[in-house]
Nucleic acid binder design. Structure first.
Lengths: 326, 326
DNA sequence: TTGAAAGCGTTACCAT
DNA sequence: ATGGTAACGCTTTCAA
């Protein structure tokens, strides 16, 4: 390449990196050669030289069923992935999709500038390994056992409050919560917010923990039992992805009308909730904003900027027919 | 690292690469040092040396609205991404998510062993650039203007035939097709298959091209006009993602019962079709198998193996209530 | 069984 | 304004 243009490697490097010290004529000659030869810089060589790969990794939890289903099949995850990739590209970087690193072997493969961990579990082992290896990490949602400011998360408390207030405004007097495994901050924080809200309003909390791996069926079961209470709920906040459909199933089976006899809000939005009968009001967790915030935070972390604390992203209540007042 | 273990770089390299020539004792000593020092090989250095990055890129079309929505919001794409990533990892590689390269700048950033192009358009410019740069490429679905065997695709013809046969078996006599821009092979091939099937069955084809960017509304409009025909269809095969819901909308608005008066099959499956009223029979395009095939093909391409021709993946008809017979 | 040295492509530094 | 050289961390080749 250098020889084709009749200049030194240094000059080529200066030209492609826009260093001002090259003579305009030389500069043009080099650029022409670059086009002619079809030359392009090798990322690996640059990475080796600079110590930076220009790549962030996004790691989803591994499911137990096998590698096939790393990613939850939720609309939320799709938006998160797409927006992370877009944000990475906007910053001149790229996004690698990887499974959670579980051992040093995995780490060896994962030669990136930073790792974004989606939905960390309590004491997430991947985080321990990454910390140990000194790889900059940012989590999407927080590891509930980790004291750390490098995370971006949904404002679960605000989301819960706006949902509960909305239900109250629509006439609900006894609101049940369907939650799941509290090792995830989403469930833990929202449940805490729900209890606090109930205390504020002098209401008795009505919480059922369901199985997030089989949300529809287990939500339906939970609602069936709730409806048999002597003082049954007139509204449900159904957190886990997919659980709202189970609530609809149970209501339909019991001849309970939604929203007339039972109002319903889903804790996370998805396309199915727009199509269901009736369409279900949902908390939009703003995956795109979360993704942008995560990448922005990662950039701060790798460039050495400090941050005062975690980033909270406000939710947005998408009102649909399942919470219409009569 | 080498000095910590008291051996040469060569030996370290041989140990971590499992070359058999090292003495077991030495080997163990090196492994211990690796653990102690927390050393891990740098991918960039290996890549520089070997010329292989161990990374494949998956490039989705850019939408016009901005970088935010590269990925279509379909379940199909989600599954494709996840399964490509999984397949890449299974082969010891990793998957990078990138926008379509549009110029040489983009290519410079994209230092990967191969690029998987999802849903190429007619004469996709990204393919031209990649070919020009000599970067191995595989497409998911085929560029209809490209004569090439390095693609994996859905068996659109088989899918169309099984859908049409199923409709016929369920009593349909006049089947309409909703398709879209035939620059995509999916629409082009399925439409051709539909016409051939009609010819075989001595039926007059009834085709409407709708706007895939606004599928629900434009499908509803198309169906509304179809229902006004003197000889209206009693079944619809609605190809574009989301169009089946528009068909349901139009039918409901016109007081036409599905499946009683109008049977419906969606050309691509999604979660919403399981929830809609009624649930809609759909062609499962097997995104996971497509993804596995794409990565497998890419591996063949980069390792120099030849292939006889493109890979076709069979579809699977998921029967739901919208095609029940009376 | 092990080691020394060259070289992958790039950029920083020091010379000219 | 430009060039030479070293160095980034690894693997391959050749030598001991």
């Amino acid at each position: 390449m250098a020889s084709h243009a009749g200049v030194s490697m240094t000059t080529v490097s200066d030209v492609v990196n826009g260093k001002g010290r090259v003579d305009p004529a030389t500069r043009q000659r080099v650029l022409d050669s670059v086009r002619d030869v079809g030359w392009r810089p090798r990322r690996s060589a640059r990475a080796l030289r600079s110590g930076e790969t220009g790549i962030f990794a996004l790691c989803f939890p591994r499911r137990e069923h096998g590698v096939q289903d790393w990613l939850l099949n939720a609309d939320y995850d799709m938006a998160l992935v797409a927006a992370c990739a877009a944000a990475a590209v906007d910053s001149g970087r790229q996004l690698l999709l990887a499974p959670r690193p579980t051992d040093l072997e995995d780490l060896a493969r994962l030669d990136v500038d930073g790792v974004i961990i989606a939905d960390p579990q309590e004491h997430d082992p991947a985080l321990r390994i990454l910390d140990q290896a000194g790889i900059p990490t940012v989590t999407v949602e927080r590891d509930i056992r980790r004291d750390d400011k490098w995370w971006v998360g949904t404002d679960n408390t605000g989301g819960a409050n706006s949902a509960l207030d909305h239900l109250t405004r629509q006439g609900a007097r006894r609101i049940a919560l369907l939650t799941a495994d509290e090792r995830w901050s989403w469930f833990a924080d929202t449940t805490a917010a729900y209890r606090a809200w109930c205390a504020d309003h002098r209401l008795r909390p009505l919480v059922r923990t369901i199985n997030a791996d089989d949300p529809r069926t287990s939500a339906a079961e939970a609602v069936r039992s709730l409806l048999r209470l002597k003082n049954p709920p007139d509204a449900v906040l159904a957190l886990p992805q997919g659980s709202a459909l189970g609530v609809l199933d149970a209501a339909a089976a019991a001849g309970i009308g939604v929203p007339d006899d039972l109002k319903l809000i889903a804790g996370i939005d998805s396309q199915t909730l727009m199509v269901s009968q009736p369409p279900v009001t949902a908390i939009n967790q703003q995956p795109m904003r979360i993704a942008q915030a995560a990448v922005a935070l990662m950039i701060k972390r790798v460039t050495g900027d400090d941050v005062p604390g975690p980033t909270l992203v406000a939710t947005d209540l998408v009102v649909r027919h399942s919470t219409a007042s009569l």
